[in-house]
Design a protein around this nucleic acid. Structure first.
Length: 257
DNA sequence: TTAAATTCCTGTAAGC
DNA sequence: TGCTTACAGGAATTTA
């Protein structure tokens, strides 16, 4: 997509655009060239001309696909962008938990429009001491803190459970009680879980498909997520399921003390 | 300020 | 078989 220009935008479901107003969004984005693509946490970043940025969060069921304009419109296609090479970028999202934002980089990264995000767990410079200090301030269950994007960016329900299992930590333990040694283990576990999942191109446990419509493979290798009642791969004891921060949480009561 | 609960939304699967 | 109901979850918003 880099190098392409957006020549037309159609908001078939305008409320997915959270900033600015839909008419302004369309007017502003039309004619802009895409200069770069990036990611921050769970947000996809399109670097555009004139220091502008298009930000897309896929939510639970969002999909971005490049198609021929003549291709039949899949159900729940909410936004389309016509490109100058004749192709069309389509955003579809059955559950509509996703969102789109447009603004200057300055405006988006500093204002209330875009949430403040914690460090990237796969960043080689990810600071364990900083994480330890952040966790010490939190009286919430560790799992809840991992899901909080302002503490660590990009970790969702699947990889929170996977990381806690790898680190042999109870998800309902209060974050502030972790020793420095445990935080080092947790940090390594987060990195391993995410890097493995990236190598396997994601977990297609629900509707997830990559940009080419292909499923990932990580769902075959998940240690605990979605395996409640099944034997722990480490000790054989049936995995437990509890609810933390409104999310199903699967863990091993023997291995994660 | 922080933590927990509620809300948004549709597809899917379980239960009767 | 066909209907109803529960459940899945990211994150903004509301409540405590």
């Amino acid at each position: 997509m880099v190098g392409r220009t957006i020549v037309r935008c159609d908001l078939r479901f305008p409320t997915l655009v959270r900033h600015p107003e839909p008419e302004v969004f369309i007017d502003s984005i039309t004619g802009l060239r895409i200069e770069s693509l990036g990611r921050r946490g769970k947000y996809i970043l399109f670097g555009l001309e004139h220091q502008r940025m298009l930000v897309i969060h896929l939510g639970m069921s969002g999909e971005l696909r490049i198609t021929e304009p003549s291709q039949e419109m899949a159900p729940h296609t909410h936004v389309t962008f016509d490109l100058d090479d004749g192709k069309q970028l389509r955003y579809r999202d059955p559950r509509r938990f996703g969102r789109l934002l447009l603004g200057t980089e300055e405006e988006l990264l500093t204002s209330r429009t875009f949430p403040r995000l914690g460090p990237e767990p796969i960043d080689p410079l990810f600071d364990t001491t900083a994480l330890y200090q952040r966790l010490r301030k939190r009286r919430a269950p560790l799992k809840a803190v991992l899901l909080d994007q302002s503490t660590i960016a990009g970790v969702g329900n699947i990889y929170a459970d996977e990381s806690l299992h790898r680190a042999r930590l109870r998800p309902d333990r209060l974050a502030q009680t972790l020793s420095r040694k445990s935080v080092v283990r947790l940090q390594a576990a987060l990195r391993e879980s995410l890097e493995l999942a990236i190598r396997n191109r994601g977990s297609s446990v629900d509707t997830y498909r990559d940009a080419w419509g292909e499923t990932g493979n990580q769902q075959e290798e998940l240690l605990v997520y979605g395996r409640a009642g099944e034997p722990c791969l480490n000790c054989g004891r049936p995995l437990s399921a509890i609810r933390i921060a409104g999310r199903t949480t699967v863990f091993c009561r023997r291995c994660q003390r």
